[in-house]
Amino acid sequence: MRLTCPLCGDRDRREFHYYGAEVYADRPDAGAALDAWDDYLHLRDNPAGETRDLWYHEIGCSAWIVVTRDTVSHRILQTALLTARQRQVGKFVYQEGDLREVPAKPGAATGGERP
């Protein structure tokens, strides 16, 4: 498996460390309610479809990367630097140029083939 680092390009999976769902980057404030901490530490969505994960390029440029993938087709759709993320009301968005589209491999399943 290869991941496209927005800085380094296509790199072997062994160069990265997996940090779980993107919400791991959204640490509650120190004084946040216990529920918020419980949510942050223990509760994760388990979508059938698009999801975003955090990967750390530890044997590379040391950047934190947000990888958008499809849990049904296993396709990786986009990668972006975590620092490019911008907060908008209730969600995080990326500027157009900060997202690296990852082309589908020939013959690979696409999201359209979901059961």
Partner: peptide
């Protein structure tokens, strides 16, 4: 230039 792994080393 590449920052990459040489064997298991950075």
């Amino acid at each position: 230039v590449a920052r990459t792994g040489l064997g298991h080393m950075m």
